[in-house]
């Protein structure tokens, strides 16, 4: 692209932004700018990335100016409850929204009672657990066996999030197979990915939570490197992983990944079902937002997905498109929550 073209596109872009901010399309039930508040603080993570993909497409579709603000879960809930009624402020988050509530993290509301669950958009299948390359555990099943034999295994996670859920699920699976032995799995409360990695490097943790995207390069380091890691468990279901492009991520192909997901691994949620977790992204709306607006967004997003371009964009970034209209999304997420609540019910938190 030439400079002229680029400068022009910037200028035109700016002009469009101004115009769309000023011109209020008369038939739309939402007027003015739309703000998407994220349930995370980071602009570098997967939530921001998924939010900006859908926000850009949606903005084009409904010809509105949409901005994405990463203000964190608790602030986002409050902003939504205070300012979301007109539909100008909506929230975008992942399973954290109800997991935080299940783990009783202060400030989390019951999304099924106090908000309208909007459409689901996409999945990040990368939720994973890793060990040092020198570790004796090849897959998560080895960890279950080891703890069952009385070994102590320390797992680094963040309180009340997806990583914590994996800990609980693992503990539950050990309890099912070796009742009474589950205390051998020890929770190590670390924070960000940096802290979790560091806990592994320091030898403070035996297993850490991570992601395919964030940790794949560490798994390719030579074994004598202090930083070398190995995947032991990918929590997404085998079915979900099958929807990924076969090249996978970096040098870890889809076929490699299939070794660390169900049914290869056996982390039971109860007597018959295996535990799986795919990180699902979705919208939340104010409880009293006009149902017309719910439908308006549902239809607009459905059209975006019908065009077929957004799917490619998600897949390019290692995400899996997964659209459901609001009603369906609510049932889907509520079922998901109930399944996890059952696991937690049998455990001390």
């Amino acid at each position: 692209m030439t400079i002229l073209k680029r400068t022009l596109s910037l200028a035109v872009g700016a002009a469009i932004m101004v115009a769309s901010g000023v011109a209020l399309a008369s038939d739309a039930p939402v007027k003015g700018n739309i703000r998407v508040v994220l349930g995370v603080n980071s602009t570098g993570g997967d939530t921001y990335q998924n939010a900006s993909i859908i926000a850009n497409r949606l903005a084009e579709k409904i010809d509105a100016n949409i901005r994405v603000d990463a203000i964190g879960a608790v602030n986002a809930f409050r902003t939504l409850q205070r300012q979301g009624k007109s539909g100008n402020t909506i929230m975008f988050i992942h399973d954290q929204a109800y997991l935080g509530r299940l783990y009783e993290v202060p400030g989390y509301i019951d999304i099924f009672e106090e908000t309208i669950v909007g459409p689901t958009i996409s999945i990040n299948p990368g939720n994973a657990y890793l060990v040092p390359k020198s570790s004796p555990y090849a897959t998560v099943d080895d960890i279950i066996e080891a703890v069952g034999k009385g070994e102590r295994v320390r797992l680094a996670t963040e309180r009340g999030g997806a990583s914590h859920l994996g800990y609980s699920a693992l503990k539950n699976a050990i309890k099912l197979k070796y009742p009474g032995k589950e205390e051998g799995l020890v929770l190590l409360n670390t924070g960000s990915q940096a802290d979790k990695n560091q806990a592994l490097f320091d030898g403070q943790a035996d297993v850490i939570h991570g992601s395919i995207q964030g940790n794949e390069q560490f798994t390719r380091l030579p074994a004598d490197d202090q930083k070398a890691m190995r995947f032991v468990w990918i929590t997404a279901s085998g079915e979900t992983i099958q929807q990924m492009p076969p090249e996978g991520m970096g040098e870890t192909t889809r076929d490699h990944m299939m070794a660390w997901v169900d049914p290869e691994t056996e982390v039971y949620a109860n007597e018959k079902d295996l535990f799986t977790y795919d990180k699902m992204f979705y919208f939340l709306y104010h409880k009293d937002m006009d149902p017309k607006i719910v439908k308006y967004f549902d239809d607009a997003i459905a059209e975006v997905f019908a065009e077929g371009e957004i799917q490619k964009e998600f897949q390019r970034s290692f995400f899996i498109p997964s659209f459901r209209k609001s009603d369906e999304a609510r049932t889907f997420l509520e079922d998901k929550k109930d399944a996890y609540a059952n696991i937690l019910a049998g455990l001390e938190k």
Binding site: G21, G32, I34, R35, Q83
Partner: peptide, 9 residues
Amino acid sequence: YVGRLFPNM
């Protein structure tokens, strides 16, 4: 106050 009259503008 005024900001809430015109959300997000």
